[in-house]
């Protein structure tokens, strides 16, 4: 989603802001949004009363989004990351943490806008993780662009404030229009904001946890919040978790937190045994071992 036609001004030096919405919530998509314009338009942009999207009321944000979409001096784009994708990546055998996913999304937007033919010279972005390291990563990937990575960039730079409106409105709409995968009866859509502290979200999670399936796929299973709801659901043991214990885990900088995430989905008190997950063919000849064919005398 985003602007499709390449405007005239795009061949002049342009600036872009990038911001995210829905990083913290335990459910729904995470959205990265960007907004770009000619450097010469930056002064006018500052008068458009974009502010950090969080400080604006929802109606005001919607209104601003509609105005900026019709503004021919502005371009925009979004990347909507599905909660299923977030869970899957964070629960892979080689886990990808949320910072990496965020970096990839932001860089994906830069890449997309460059490929459209926009002459980006400056990109402003809210930091994820250490600003210095993030800036180095961005500059390495896009040497022709000057990156300004800052905390609270969304309230410091109007171009980032604009991007935050694009992201926030897209996330809110996506959640509002979300079609649940699950077809079970009594599936409600009153998820609230999705933030783990929101009483509406808490109630929804409590009402929609499932003994076998855990939660609907709208929920980010990799969030620590889920564990507190999983105390009485069926335990699930994964082959990949067994691999983790053999030391095959990722070389992640965030190793400790990721290890904890691998426990998501079950209440881990008992020792895991690989035999519980799959047959092994242990002690048999190689033909059977390689095929995990166990000799069964009783069942």
């Amino acid at each position: 989603m985003g602007s499709k036609i390449l405007p005239q001004w795009a061949s002049k030096p342009c600036a872009m802001g990038i911001d995210e919405a829905g990083r913290g919530p335990v459910l729904g998509p995470m959205v990265y949004g960007c907004l770009y314009c000619a450097q010469s338009y930056m002064k006018t942009l500052a008068t458009l009363s974009f502010a950090d999207s969080k400080t604006l009321k929802e109606e005001k944000r919607e209104e601003l989004f509609e105005t900026l979409k019709t503004n021919e001096s502005i371009g925009w784009a979004v990347d909507v990351i599905d909660p299923r994708e977030l869970s899957a990546k964070m629960l892979k055998k080689n886990k990808i943490n949320l910072n990496e996913i965020s970096h990839d999304s932001a860089m994906g937007l830069v890449d997309r806008v460059l490929k459209m033919g926009v002459l980006l010279t400056e990109v402003y972005i809210d930091t994820v993780g250490d600003p210095g390291k993030y800036e180095m990563k961005l500059s390495k990937n896009f040497p022709s662009i000057k990156f300004v990575v800052a905390k609270k960039a969304d309230s410091l730079y109007p171009v980032v404030s604009g991007a935050s409106i694009v992201a926030k409105v897209t996330r809110d709409r996506a959640l509002r229009e979300w079609v649940l995968d699950e077809t079970a009866e009594n599936m409600q859509r009153n998820f609230g904001s999705g933030y783990p502290g929101d009483p509406k979200t808490k109630d929804w999670l409590e009402d929609h946890k499932h003994h076998i399936f855990g939660f609907p796929t709208l929920v980010r299973f990799s969030w620590g919040t889920c564990n507190s709801y999983f105390k009485d659901v069926a335990q699930v043991l994964w082959e990949s978790d067994n691999l983790d214990e053999d030391g095959g885990g990722g070389s992640n900088s965030n190793g400790k937190r990721q290890l904890k995430l691998s426990n998501v989905g079950f209440f881990s008190t008992s020792k895991r045994r690989s035999e519980e997950v799959e047959s092994s063919g242990k002690g048999r000849c190689r033909f059977f071992q390689a095929r995990k064919l166990e000799h069964l005398t009783n069942f």
Binding site: E182, T183, I212, F213, A234, V236, E239, V277
Partner: peptide, 18 residues
């Protein structure tokens, strides 16, 4: 499935597993 679900009994598979 590549996991062990510690539960024996019926489950609403078709409603949740798509």
């Amino acid at each position: 499935l590549p996991c062990c679900v510690k539960h024996d009994g019926p489950a609403s598979v078709s409603h949740y597993f798509k």
